[in-house]
Every structure is written in structure tokens, then in C-alpha cells.
Amino acid sequence: MFTNDTLKGRSALVTGGGSGLGLGIATAYAQLGANVMIVGRNEERLESAIEHLKKSGGSVASMKCDVRNYDEVKAAVEATVSRFGQLDIMVNNAAGNFICPTSELSPNGWRTVIDIDLNGTFYGCHAAYPHLQKSPFGGSIISIITMLGVTGWPQAAHASAAKGGILSLSRTLAVEWGADNIRVNTISPGPIGDTEGVKRMYIDVGRGEMEAQKTALGRFGKTIDIANAAVFLASGLGEYITGENLIVDGGRWLKQIAPSTLGAKA
């Protein structure tokens, strides 16, 4: 639906870009003309992702990076600028999570998810700032969260708190950095059926149909749905949008909070 040059001339860094939503976003960016750097902790996964991205066209590169380490994040940003000459789009996608009742959640488990999700996002924004400020297109920061970070996420308090924190951080930076021509937005995906996370948490344990029916559309989304949203926000199509949380969840969060009156007799 986008022209092949929608992102031509732009350079992007995608954390957690070796698989899942991060790889989907990186693929869409490369196909639409962007230069793309993907980073992650698993070198083997990055190598496989790069082979995939090379088929999409464009200039692509990868680098090992643990987003919990600010120095590594800053090095990845600097490597992107060194390789492509500029940084225009920063996608904070790297995330960690596991299901655990809060009463049984260890301080280390809490700290690990907060470090990856919330601190990693802050590190990405902070390290990218001086380069995004110089972008001839205007800088764009996109962070992947979830509406469960707004409504609450029973048995995932660590991830819920981190994602809610990212939303607040993003809206704060949208105001602080707006004068620097940097737009800061978030995307809240719903259950995406072709990702490993949904397969592992829902489909493999026989909860796929039940979870799909929790959405207003009655089905899982696809990785391309999130990638298209990330293209829109990063491109000139969304150049007057900042501080926004783009919800791409098939209406799941609305159905969860709406009264169960559908089908009831008057």
C-alpha cells in the first residue's frame, strides 16, 4: 500500500530486530527504501535475519547489543550513523516478559524486565537524541508497548509497569523534544498470530481460539499489521503525529472493558 520510496533516504535502528515484530518492521522499512540496522543479543538470530533482509533490498546491517547496557546501546547508535551517515528513525522493540503471579515475582525477575523494556527504551531514546535532532526528515522514535500496560496485566506486573512507563516517557519526550523536530510515538499491538510469543503462550497450549475471540474482530493480527503502522508513523505520512499511542489490536482492549451486552435481549 506504500510506494517503494516511502522511506527512501532514511536510516533506522531497530532493537530486537532479529525476529518477530522487530524483524517485520525492519523488513518493511528495507522494502520501502530505508537503510536499516538491527540489533539484538543473539548473534545467530541476527545473522539469519540479515540474510532475510538482504532479499528485501536496501542497505542493511546488524550488531550485537544488550539494551540493558547503555554503552552498548550508544555504540549501536554510533555504528548506525557511521554506516549510513545519519539516524532518522529509532524503533525501541526489544522486550522481555514471563508470566508470574506478583506475590511470587522475585526482585531480580522484576528488575530484569524493567531493565530490558523500560530502561532499554530510555537508553535508546537518550542515545539517539543528538542524531535524530539532525535528521533532515525530522527524527522519529517509535516504541512498541501494549494496552495491557494501560489497563493492567495480571500475572505480568513487571511488563505492565514497564510498558506503562514507556507510554508516559514517550509522551513526555514528545513535548520536550518537539521543538527539536523529533516525533515520539508508541504502538500497542494486540495478539499477533505469526509471532513466537503468541504461538508459545496461546496457540501451543490450546488457548488460540479463546484469545482470538477476545478481540472485537475475532481473530489474531499479523506482523505486517504492526509493520505498516510503524511505516506510517516513521514516514512523511505521519509527520504531524506525536505523543500518540497507535492501538493495533483488533479492538481487544475495547472488548475487554465493554459491558457484555452483545446478544442480550432488550
Rank of each mutant, 00 (worst) to 15 (best):
P130I: 15
S168F: 06
L169E: 02
N119W: 09
D117H: 06
K134M: 10
L148V: 10
H158T: 07
T121K: 05
Q155G: 03
L132F: 04
I166V: 15
G124H: 04
I166R: 07
A162R: 11
K134V: 03
L148E: 13
T146A: 11
I116V: 14
G124N: 08
S170R: 02
G139W: 02
I142N: 03
P154W: 06
G152Y: 03
Y129N: 12
T121N: 10
T151E: 06
A157P: 04
T121E: 11
F122D: 04
G164P: 05
G120D: 09
A156I: 10
S135C: 12
G139I: 12
L132M: 09
G149I: 05
I144V: 11
S143H: 01
I144W: 02
V150K: 11
I145Y: 08
I166N: 05
C125Y: 11
G152S: 02
Y129C: 02
P136M: 00
L132Y: 00
K163T: 06
L132A: 10
A159P: 04
Q133L: 09
T146Y: 14
H158C: 08
Q155W: 03
F122M: 14
W153L: 14
Y123I: 05
S140T: 07
C125R: 08
P154Q: 08
G165P: 09
K134R: 10
A159E: 08
A159T: 13
T146P: 08
C125Q: 14
H158G: 12
H158A: 15
